[in-house]
Design a protein around this nucleic acid. Structure first.
Lengths: 346, 346
DNA sequence: CATTCAGTTGACAACGTTGTCCAGGCCCTA
DNA sequence: TAGGGCCTGGACAACGTTGTCAACTGAATG
């Protein structure tokens, strides 16, 4: 709120308080509190009078005040990279379900892959005194969170590890997944394989690249620098990168795409190409099975990722005190056709 | 939180308060408040002492207390149907961006298409005293919100209208869009056209059905009951419905799918069929252009929907007092192939 | 030197709730 | 009837912040 001028007559729109209810019901303040919270020690008769007053006034407990008094907000914050990215939808939903099961509300925000924005958001959430935080990090230095964590804000990082602090992390096995995906291409006869990934400062991107190199090395293949392209996932950039690899002096016969956004663009480019090129993408995509050919992917279970992170968070909130742990969830290779295309030979 | 037992030593993890900062800096409480809020009337010298104390203690203002005092929470609630549905991602994100521009946080929740859950969520948000609410309704009776709205909670409904109360609404033109989509099929020669939609108690589903009938009537075509199927969007149900239409005594030659989830399933079913069937779907889908044939859709602009709703909300919060309005955004027919398939003739 | 004034500063109440504690009424028993 | 315990109800402080207001400082003015 840019500037909330003080309009005292409008505070919460002048809602009735327990005091008002008490006055109307002719009882004490605390009695109303007892009724509202279902605490024992109120005769049915009194309770009914209070209920009627609540009804008549349209009273609704002010949780802001309650929070202040109780010291717990029953809310958690989830900072992800982009609320609109379909990959994070199931994760978001899974976190919500766990929160709901614990009676907590979910405050959401996107970092837009900007470390400064991530920090701003996280600190705003801390100022709200959320009970816990689940963060998909954009930055690689989270020391700014140290005082918060020390002060008791449970924090779990998901999808990417925290930077320079020791905290709970829930990850997909990016390295292993990429390695498996690239090995799959190699197993189908490919020797010149391209890799198109996100900026290497992003942990998952770096890990997947590492997996690519590992698979190549496992097979005794040298990875030409011209086959590897890292950077923004903007369609133009990816398009240029794929094109360069396919038209270079040593054209690749297969491409490994580092995430869902890259994959989508690569599919588009390959669709316009004459000669077939094999493709395996990291992350599953809706309708991937209906493409011609079906899209072979290394799938991660985003919902499970979210569930695991939220479970961990609430275990912490329930008092678990063990050392921060790193949980790594497996990926799954789903062969649908595009990854099984043999190398093109002139 | 099921039961937050009172652990007073753990309230907010014993964070320092302005009082602590004041004590350490050797100044008064209010002076700290002034520094924290950038209010004038503090000498640079004093300010620095306070800043140092803040730094040293790792103080962070408690917005819960602030909210209680100021009467505004600088947060809005967004209740949608399913956080994981890709259609709502861009809407969610758009709302977030507008909220962010106004310095407000976003509290998110899914109704899971359950009116009771919607109400529960909305009332929880009201108890938190969110400044405003954006709701994608699941239920069709929102009179429970009357006291809240009267008490000053700005409320905007989006995607579907409010039930039995007068409130701001931002919608896509479901009727017009469906009518145009069906007319498109008719223009390509179809006479027997199936309609598969969501449960008709959902407003958009009913409107799209109405658009279907209107288009048929416009063309002087009778719509056979056997061509219309409404109900859950579960894949099995949709699969059965399509199959029945295609194998009935008067088989349809084209299908209009009432939303993205239905469309996806219909595409799958048609892909397994020998004879070509035309298809137009409501809602655009990622990769729709890469299917064979490309998927013809009636697209709505979810981000614009969200932006419009949030803009309206914040205009209300800024004091706009005009009568509740209904905003209807146009849809756009995108022809990609599947809707231009001619009727199959034996 | 008395007075005014602007600029700083802090004491205090208030926001609406919940936790603590005590008072009064009742019933039971001796 | 007195004493004890239980049940119900309310007075009051506290949570951490901000708005109000008055007190103080030092300098400038008469």
């Amino acid at each position: 709120m840019a500037e909330t001028e003080s309009r005292p007559e409008l505070r919460y729109g002048n809602r009735p308080t327990m005091k008002d209810v008490a006055a109307r019901a002719g009882v004490g303040l605390k009695t109303v509190s007892r009724v509202v919270n279902g605490e024992p020690g109120v005769t049915p008769d009194t309770e009914q009078r209070v209920q009627e007053a609540i009804e008549a006034l349209g009273f609704r407990r002010n949780d802001s005040a309650r929070v202040l008094r109780k010291g717990r907000t029953a809310s958690i914050g989830l900072v992800l990279e982009d609320l609109a990215d379909p990959f994070y939808g199931p994760l978001n939903r899974a976190v919500e379900e766990v929160a709901r099961a614990h009676g907590a509300l979910l405050i959401n925000g996107s970092s837009a892959e900007d470390p400064a924005r991530e920090q701003e958001l996280v600190l705003a959430l801390c100022a709200r005194r959320v009970d816990g935080l689940i963060v998909i990090p954009a930055g690689d230095d989270h020391r700014y969170l140290e005082p918060e964590i020390a002060a008791g804000v449970a924090t779990v990082f998901v999808d990417r590890p925290a930077g320079r602090i020791d905290a709970d992390v829930v990850l997909s096995d990016s390295f292993g997944g990429a390695r498996e995906g690239v090995a799959h291409l190699i197993a189908h006869g490919h020797r010149r394989i391209g890799f198109i990934g996100d900026q290497p400062r992003i942990h998952t991107a770096a890990e997947r690249l590492r997996g690519y190199y590992a698979a190549m090395e496992d097979a005794g293949l040298a990875a030409d620098d011209a086959w590897v392209s890292l950077g923004s996932t903007a369609p133009e950039r990816v398009r240029d990168a794929v094109t360069a690899m396919l038209d270079g002096p040593e054209p690749v016969t297969a491409v490994f795409a580092g995430n869902n956004r890259v994959t989508v663009t690569v599919v588009r480019v390959l669709a316009g190409r004459e000669r077939p090129v094999a493709l395996v993408g990291f992350d599953d995509i809706e309708l991937a099975d209906l493409l011609q050919p079906g899209l072979t992917v290394v799938a991660q279970d985003a919902a499970r990722l979210g569930r695991a992170a939220a479970d961990r968070l609430f275990r912490r909130l329930d008092g678990a005190n063990d050392a921060p742990a790193r949980t790594e969830l497996p990926t799954r290779l789903i062969a649908r056709g595009s990854g099984e295309i043999p190398p093109w030979t002139p």
